[in-house]
Design a protein around this nucleic acid. Structure first.
Length: 220
DNA sequence: ACCCAGGTGGCCC
DNA sequence: GGGCCACATGGG
C-alpha cells in the first residue's frame, strides 16, 4: 500500500468490520461520561480510566454540576488511578466551566457547525485536537477522524512514508459514509491494534495480511 | 529497575 | 511551526 486511496481506506474499514464486528463506541452510558473519559484517557490506558470513572460514580461526582462544585482535592483523589490527578482535575474543571456556559446541556452546544464547535472546544485549556475530535465524533456525531496514538501507528505501519507525508484526516472522512462509520472505524483500529501487530513479528491470522504482506517491515 | 500508555500546554528557538 | 519538558499512576 503506497498511495492511501479512497478505495483502499474503504477496503480496510470493511475488512476490519467483517473481522471484529460493530464495536459500539464510545464505551459510556452518558455524553458527560464520554467527555470525562476523553480527558482522563489522555496519555493513559483505558483500563485505569475505568477505575477513575467508577470512583467518581461511587461518590456521586459523575454528574456535571456536582463535579463542578466539588473541591479539587476530592476530584483529584477520585481520578488518581488514571494519572496526572491534579492536572486532569484542573482540566475537568476547565471543561465544566465552559460547559456551564451552556447550562450543562450538550444540546445547547450542538447548534454550532463542526468547525466553530471545534474551535470553541480547543479554547478550553486541557482540550487539544484529539480530545476535541473525540467529543465532536462521539458526543456530537460529527463526521471527523480522530488522529491518536493508535491511528497514527496503524496508518504509518500500513502505508509508506511518502503516503504518510500527505496524510490528511479529510481522506478518511471522505472515504466513509457518516459519523457512525467513522466512530466504528476508529474503534475497529483500536480493537485490531490490541489483537495484532504489537509484539508479534508475523501476523498470520491478521485480517489485513493481504495488504500488509508487501513488506515485512510493515509489521516490524 | 526500567518503559510505556487512546495528550496537552508552556517555553524556547 | 517544531523540539523538549512536566505532568503521575498502574502494569508489563
Amino acid at each position: 500500500m503506497q498511495k492511501m486511496t479512497l478505495s483502499e481506506i474503504q477496503y480496510i474499514f470493511e475488512t476490519l468490520f467483517d473481522a471484529y464486528g460493530p464495536q459500539g463506541w464510545w464505551p459510556a452510558y452518558t455524553p458527560f461520561e464520554i467527555a470525562v473519559g476523553a480527558i482522563l484517557v489522555q496519555n493513559t490506558m483505558w483500563r485505569n480510566v475505568k477505575i477513575s470513572i467508577k470512583n467518581l460514580e461511587k461518590i456521586g461526582l459523575l454528574e456535571p454540576y456536582r463535579m463542578y462544585v466539588t473541591s479539587n482535592e476530592k476530584l483529584a483523589a477520585a481520578i488518581k488511578p488514571s494519572g496526572f490527578p491534579r492536572l486532569k482535575a484542573e482540566r475537568l474543571r476547565n471543561f465544566l466551566h465552559f460547559f456551564s456556559e451552556f447550562s450543562f446541556d450538550f444540546e445547547e452546544m450542538n447548534k454550532y457547525d463542526t468547525e466553530t464547535l471545534r474551535k470553541l472546544l480547543l479554547k478550553v485549556n486541557g482540550i487539544g485536537k484529539e480530545t476535541a475530535d473525540s467529543l465532536l465524533l462521539y458526543i456530537f456525531k460529527r463526521p471527523v477522524f480522530i488522529l491518536d496514538a493508535y491511528t497514527k501507528r496503524f496508518f504509518s505501519r500500513l502505508f509508506s512514508k511518502e503516503a504518510m507525508k500527505t496524510f490528511e484526516k479529510e481522506k478518511i472522512v471522505n472515504a466513509l459514509k457518516d459519523a457512525k462509520e467513522m466512530g466504528e472505524f476508529h474503534a475497529l483500529i483500536v480493537q485490531h491494534s490490541k489483537a495484532h501487530c504489537r509484539s508479534k513479528p508475523i501476523c498470520s491470522g491478521c485480517p489485513l495480511r493481504k495488504v500488509c504482506e508487501f513488506g515485512s517491515e510493515l509489521h516490524e
